[in-house]
Nucleic acid binder design. Structure first.
Length: 501
RNA sequence: GGCGCGGUACCCAAGUGGUAAGGGAGAGGUCUGCAAAACCUUUAUGCGCCGGUUCGAUCCCGGCCCGCGCCUCCA
């Protein structure tokens, strides 16, 4: 069974396929690097990541391009305010963006396309539109797209142009363009933009590209006139993606993207998480409060992409516990030797097989991550029960591990890298003089003077010796001391395990 | 006003025309030197409200109430 995915354009769930028979050519609108991203931004990239991983699970090869918008009004404004060029200003936010992507376990696309490195492609696309009279230049030297020359305008967002007549919301007199809905393709250079190195000399005249033309030009340059899939947050549907369609299809006279994928918003207290609302959390905020990167990933993926997710710190704690349970289970099954034979093995093997099939089927059914998760927990409980009763065979354990590997190829939370991401966030906070934002327990557990792994191991060994001598008072004292420093011990037949809480 | 989405147990959440997955939390229990982990039991005669279709609806249709998003930069 192939991956079935909701297509915003058709309004239906449709199979996703590579039209060239080789690789899925897909484009995802990336970040504008004027500031740190918040976790609402990353929700989109996380679900695009699951889409990537599921497509691969279904046998699709990928050619995924993501843009970086490294020139825009906010970048120009902030760069000017700090006396830097736009490149100097935005570099640190691009670095931070990829650090956050890594901490959240998001795979890199096959190609990253920076707007400022693709100006010629944008200029020539505008020239193609100008040659048809669809792009026109205004007195100040800017270029606009003439919407009434593209009859399909509104087909993606299902907007009726007749209901958006000129003058309805926009005062035409403020603009030097033919119709209020016409959107900017090229913005004529202003003096301060030349100072920030945010202007380019092209046949269109000095200036910089509009946001919409960036994506059209880069998608077509890297992936061709007609692409398989285009992804982004739901807010980009209109006008951004609508404008991309208009630009690309008006220029090429071919369908631009066959399949459109939109991820719905993350809410906070019932409202959209947004910079402008001030109700946002960055990944760094949360790591410095002591939440784990894996829990954030798991929470944001647990609600399917077509539903809004109301983010709360409580739900993040729940996710932490759920990830812990999965990790404990994974360690238990992976690190123990299981007998060749076990009673009731056929029934258990069948249950695992069903769980495995259910996991894949759920993902292939429009990326139903909630149901996929549930399939794994079903197996977890049954296998733990069998293991408790001595009824887990080596074969069943291997099948279980195969499912866990498949699960982790999508969810990517079983391997514990949380401490290193928290340490990195702490180092960043120190460098940025933001230590006041760090929760005390994070400082204690991960900051200077916190226990190293070797010190922990030594204490654990000392406690084991004390236990062997039946000096339980000393053993319990060590356990208590470690727990206060965020280290939880677990005794088992296979020895003592410890983990950070 | 136009377009789109949603209202399921204490919280998060899946789902189907035939009688409610899963996670978290709470309570009780088993196991263990004690813990932790794990397991067992337990928490919706009901899926926003009112009608309709049907042998039967949480799931289909109609109306209503509530919430969110887009219609302007925005993941």
């Amino acid at each position: 069974m192939a991956l079935q995915l909701f297509n915003t354009l058709s309004g239906k769930i449709e199979p996703l396929f590579a039209s060239d028979g080789h690789a899925l050519r897909f484009y995802c609108c990336g970040p504008t690097i004027y500031d740190y991203g918040h976790i609402g931004n990353f929700r989109t990239f996380l679900h695009v990541d699951v889409l990537r991983r599921t497509a691969r699970l279904s046998g699709l090869a990928l050619h995924h391009v993501m843009n970086i918008t490294d020139v825009d009004d906010k970048i120009i404004r902030n760069a000017a305010a700090s006396g830097k060029s736009i490149g100097e200003y935005s570099a640190r936010f691009e670095r931070a963006f990829f650090e956050d992507m890594d901490a959240l376990g998001i795979e890199r696309p096959e190609e990253i396309a920076r707007a400022t490195q693709n100006i010629p492609a944008m200029a020539s696309l505008i020239e193609r539109l100008a040659a048809q009279g669809i792009a026109y230049k205004t007195e100040d030297g800017s270029w606009y797209f003439r919407i009434n020359r593209f009859p399909g305008y509104g087909k993606l967002s299902k907007k009726d142009l007749a209901g958006m007549e000129d003058g309805a919301r926009v005062d035409l007199d403020e603009y030097d363009k033919d119709a209020a809905r016409d959107f900017a393709l090229w913005k004529a250079a202003r003096p301060e933009e030349i100072a920030s190195q945010a202007a380019w000399d092209t046949a269109l005249g000095p200036g910089r590209p509009g946001w919409h033309i960036e994506c059209s030009a880069m998608a077509m340059k890297y992936l061709g006139d007609s692409i398989d899939l285009h992804a982004g947050g739901e807010d980009l549907m209109f006008p951004h993606h609508e404008n991309e369609i208009a630009q690309s299809e008006a220029a090429s006279h071919k369908p631009f993207a066959r399949h459109w994928f939109h991820v719905r918003f993350l809410l906070v207290e019932g409202k959209k998480m947004a910079k402008s609302e001030g109700n946002f959390f960055t990944l760094r905020d949360l790591l410095l409060k002591g939440y784990r990167a894996s829990a954030i990933r798991f929470l944001l993926l647990s609600v399917p992409y077509r539903h809004q997710l109301n983010f709360t710190l409580d739900s993040l704690t729940e996710s932490t516990n759920a990830v812990d349970r999965l990790r404990t289970f994974n360690r238990r099954i992976r690190n123990q030797a299981w007998p060749d034979q076990a009673p009731a093995d056929d029934a258990l093997l069948e249950l695992i097989r069903k769980g495995d099939a259910g996991f894949t089927a759920a993902l292939e059914d429009d990326l139903n991550t909630a149901e996929a998760r549930a399939a794994v927990f079903d197996v977890l409980r049954a296998v733990n029960t069998a293991a408790d009763q001595g009824n887990l065979s080596r074969m069943a354990a291997e099948q279980t591990l195969a499912l866990l590997d498949k699960f982790d190829a999508i969810f990517a939370v079983l391997e514990d890298h949380d401490a290193e991401h928290t340490r990195a966030a702490l180092a960043w906070a120190e460098a940025e003089d933001r230590l006041s934002q760090v929760a005390p327990e994070v400082l204690e557990r991960f900051g200077a003077g916190s226990l190293t792994d070797a010190q922990i191991e030594a204490l654990v060994a000392e406690r084991t010796r004390a236990k062997q001598q039946r000096n339980f008072a000393r053993a319990d004292a060590i356990r208590k001391e470690l727990l206060e420093k965020g280290i939880l011990l677990e005794d088992s037949r296979q020895g003592v395990r410890w983990k950070r809480t």
